[in-house]
């Protein structure tokens, strides 16, 4: 340890003392070291004579009847603030450092990737907004419960979206801009300040790789499943055709699912999923309207003069039956004759 390091260390740890006392002490130690060196020892040897600096500090503070673990919050937060500011500066400067070392081509690639990220986030946002506006009308007419439900779901969706956006942006920055980033050493002290830029702890790389693998596997499996289903459908069709024409069924090859096709199927599936909920609602209203019309019919037969309202009920019931039927067809593909079903 050099004399400067030793004295700096002492100064830091003795912050609790008033300035004169501290300066006094540091002076004495400096003098002592000087004299030892004058008598022939090296700087290292002179300081080694003091033993463990931590122990020394403890005994020094003990002389003032102070808690040796004490660091006044003022100086502690001051050093912490200083560390934060330094960390920010270090972060920004290392970012710029890395960027400057990029070639023009790499910078352009980086820019493209940033655009992709922005586009991706934008698409999700638009999709969410669209979905939100679709559902908005429906739920708001269901009274205060519907409104509450809608608001809660919207809030939840927003939180997830923002978290996802932040996560991706951080990952992006870490991956492409902070390749050689080494965070600053936090100041020595009893309470470690929260390390703002300790990205290593987030294990982002691990998570993202896991997610990618998982998504990849999922996509693969989904693709395979679709392909198999398509093959089965084709096989059964072939079987029926063969029976009709009185021939042997031809072996159907395992179909190739293109990415576009897969995407389409996924989108259709999602739409059907949403449609399912509408189907439920429509079905419920249909049932209740049918029941109401039946009751109305009974009353009409019993002589009540409610022909008008009854006819209206009947009309609504029929309409809801039709809507339910349409939705059924859309969601489950039942009764669709001409369209290819999955």
């Amino acid at each position: 340890m050099t004399k400067k390091d030793f004295l700096n260390f002492l100064e830091q740890r003795l912050m609790v003392l008033n300035d004169t006392e501290r300066a006094d002490l540091l002076n004495e130690y400096e003098e002592h070291i000087e004299m030892k060196m004058a008598s022939g020892l090296s700087e290292e040897e002179a300081i080694a004579g003091f033993g463990d600096p931590e122990e020394l500090v403890k005994e020094l503070l003990d002389a003032y009847h102070l808690n040796t673990d004490y660091q006044p919050s003022g100086s502690r937060s001051a050093s912490r603030i200083a560390w934060y500011v330094k960390s920010c500066a270090h972060f920004v400067s290392s970012m710029f450092d890395t960027l400057f070392h990029y070639s023009i081509r790499d910078l352009f690639k980086l820019f493209l990737q940033a655009c992709f990220l922005a586009a991706f986030l934008g698409v999700i946002l638009l999709g969410g907004a669209f979905l939100g506006s679709l559902l908005h009308g429906t739920f708001w007419h269901l009274g205060w419960i519907g409104r509450l439900f809608y608001d809660m779901v919207a809030l939840f969706a927003w939180i997830i979206y923002i978290a996802l956006a932040i996560y991706l942006v951080i990952f992006f920055i870490k991956r492409y801009i902070l390749i050689d980033y080494q965070p600053l050493e936090p100041p020595a002290g009893n309470s470690q300040p929260k390390e703002l830029f300790r990205m290593e702890n987030l294990h982002l790389d691990e998570h993202f790789d896991n997610a990618k693998t998982y998504a990849g596997n999922m996509a693969e499996q989904t693709g395979e499943a679709f392909a198999r289903m398509k093959q089965k459908a084709a096989e059964s069709r072939e079987l029926r055709a063969a029976r009709r024409e009185g021939r042997e069924p031809v072996k159907v090859p395992f179909p190739d699912i293109s990415l576009g096709e897969l995407c389409m199927k996924i989108i259709v599936f999602c739409c059907r999923f949403i449609g399912f909920f509408f189907l439920l609602m429509a079905g419920c209203s249909a049932l209740s309207l049918i029941a109401a019309s039946a009751a109305g019919l009974v009353f009409v037969v019993m002589g009540y003069k409610i022909i008008g309202p009854f006819l209206m009920l009947l009309g609504c019931a029929l309409l809801s039956i039709v809507i339910t039927g349409l939705l059924l067809q859309f969601v489950f593909g039942i009764g669709g004759g001409k369209h290819e079903t999955v």
């Binding site: 003091f50 033993g51 122990e55 005994e59 003990d62 002389a63």
Partner: peptide, 12 residues
């Protein structure tokens, strides 16, 4: 004796 500990003692 460890020189370092003399100064704390003197201080005290």
């Amino acid at each position: 004796v460890n020189e370092g500990t003399i100064y704390p003692l003197l201080k005290r």
